[in-house]
């Protein structure tokens, strides 16, 4: 009964905070929040693959980068393209990349899957650096035009140089993506993914086609990573090899998922929040973010392998057994 009332109130409160966030916290923290939102969606997209299907990819930056480069190239070379088609082009670029790779990578799993992605991620990083006439090499593609968000005949919201408007666009797109992925994992098809993670052979015997099923979730994961990448590119007005394709871009969502809890849908979001806070703090004191991240990873794997979500679950279990035993005591006494 209580839960039924509390939940909508919490959602409403969250919505109100999100709407008034720029007014409450100012431009700097709004930008921090946009980064957080983008990486949260990216981490959730990676975790859909990692936590739900058990496939660890060390090269998801290539989808992130495909989205970013797709959008940036479209905005730079196609005159008068509107914002939504440009984002769509980035999205489709990531989907195409995932479709091309899917037949190859769905045949392997486990360590080989991770290593193939490490290699392909590196390949795209090198390609982006070397194909200078397309990607701009080390400089990347910067300062491309960002058109206003328009619904023809209704509204036109300028985005370039306006962080608050960009914040709202970003929140809407990221919220929709999260909702879609949440919905996707709850469908029967999404549950088959969990089955593949837990016992691939049994799902195979039940008559499901394993590689095809994996391929679909692979494309979904890649597509949303690409969407996150293309908003990231728009946010910075810059797409570069290091910023969108580098190894850290591949590793950070994995770290976030690991810290938040692999296999829990909202875990990666918590993980990204922790990650973001730590990055903010460490940047103030030292520039050795890598070192701090490494130490956190080691500590998490050794002492809390199921992340924040795992810790919260154990606490909940303890609380429940505690209250249950207390109720029992009261009954007997």
């Amino acid at each position: 009964m209580m839960k039924k009332i509390i939940k909508p109130i919490l959602w409403l409160a969250l919505l109100i905070i999100l709407i008034f966030f720029p007014k409450l916290f100012g431009v700097y923290y709004t930008n921090v929040f946009v980064t957080f939102a983008i990486f949260a969606v990216y981490a959730v997209a990676v975790n859909v693959l990692l936590g739900y299907t058990g496939l660890l990819s060390f090269g998801h930056a290539m989808f992130f980068g495909a989205g970013g480069y797709g959008t940036a190239l479209a905005l730079k070379h196609i005159d008068g393209i509107a914002l939504m088609p440009a984002i769509g082009i980035g999205f489709i670029a990531a989907i195409l990349l995932a479709l091309v790779l899917a037949p190859l990578v769905t045949r392997v799993s486990g360590t080989a899957f991770a290593m193939i992605h490490l290699a392909f991620g590196q390949l795209f990083y090198v390609l982006a650096l070397k194909l200078r006439n397309i990607t701009g090499g080390e400089d990347g593609i910067g300062n491309f035009p960002i058109p206003a968000f328009t619904i023809p005949g209704l509204i036109s919201i300028p985005l370039k140089g306006d962080p608050v408007n960009f914040y709202y666009l970003c929140i809407v797109i990221m919220g929709l993506s999260l909702w879609l992925m949440w919905f996707f994992t709850k469908t029967p098809f999404g549950q088959i993914q969990v089955g593949i993670r837990d016992n691939e052979k049994r799902i195979d015997y039940l008559g499901y086609k394993i590689p095809q099923t994996k391929a679909i979730i692979y494309v979904v994961s890649g597509a949303f990573s690409g969407l996150a990448g293309c908003l990231y590119g728009l946010f910075h007005n810059l797409v570069s090899a290091d910023g969108s394709l580098g190894a850290m871009i591949s590793f950070s969502p994995i770290i976030a998922s690991m810290v938040g809890g692999v296999g829990s849908f909202f875990g990666p979001i918590w993980g990204t929040a922790v990650f973001q806070v730590i990055e903010e703090l460490t940047h103030r004191f030292t520039d050795r973010v890598e070192l701090v991240m490494g130490v956190i990873l080691i500590l998490v794997v050794m002492f809390a392998p199921s992340g924040i979500a795992g810790v919260v679950n154990t606490m909940k279990m303890k609380w429940h057994t505690y209250t249950a035993s207390k109720a029992k005591m009261e009954k007997t006494s």
Binding site: L56, F58, T111, A114, F251, I254, I255, M258, R288, E290, L291, V292, M293, G294, V295, I296, L297, I298, V300, V301, M302
Partner: peptide
């Protein structure tokens, strides 16, 4: 994989 990745980041750092 994650642990050894963390180790490599620490060594590099």
């Amino acid at each position: 994989l994650i642990l050894t990745l963390g180790l490599s980041m620490v060594i590099l750092g």
